[in-house]
Amino acid sequence: MVSHTNSGPQWSRRNFLATSAASTMSVTLLDHPPTTAAPSSAADPRNPFVTNTTINNRHYRLAIDVRTTLLDALREHAGLAGSKKGCDHGQCGACTVLVDGRRVLSCLTLAASTDGKNITTVEGLAQMDGTLHPMQQAFIDHDAFQCGYCTPGQIVSAVACVDEGHAESEATIREYMSGNLCRCAAYPNIVDAIKQAKTKMKGA
């Protein structure tokens, strides 16, 4: 693994990957501050783009390719694999996360666009002591999933649906949850779960 050639810094694929893996929390590949709002015409667009975001109340500094979507940044760089990649084209809603309280499709959001913003993923809903969010508990109580792949997106979306005040009737719940597809067709149970969680979330 250690090579003994004397030709400058040793950058192999292996130690690059090891470095990347070890620095999931705070990646600092650049020693100069992020160039926000600077006319970025001269710099090579392949240079890492530095973002500072708060994810689930923790600060993350990531130096990533500017093309990285928020979903890939969360899953591959921040180590938060709760948000799922379903279609990667914004059709299924499995990747739904909250950015400053608004639900967005993280697969169609650039991580660079969320610099300085506050992101909540499904990992950030439960309390520190492990107590589930009322919506998570309601999904369990009502069997609101079968395979569970869409569930992180469904739960995040459902929390926002209630917070937006769009959970007043079954019709509005179905309308405002229509961006989240479930191929197991657990929709009736999802609606029931949201109705249950709504009352608990209002009581909280």
């Binding site: 709002a37 970025s40 015409s41 667009p45 783009f49 093309r67 666009s113």
Partner: peptide, 8 residues
């Protein structure tokens, strides 16, 4: 996707 300059 090709690399691009990003500004906000």
């Amino acid at each position: 996707m090709q690399p691009f300059h990003f500004a906000r």
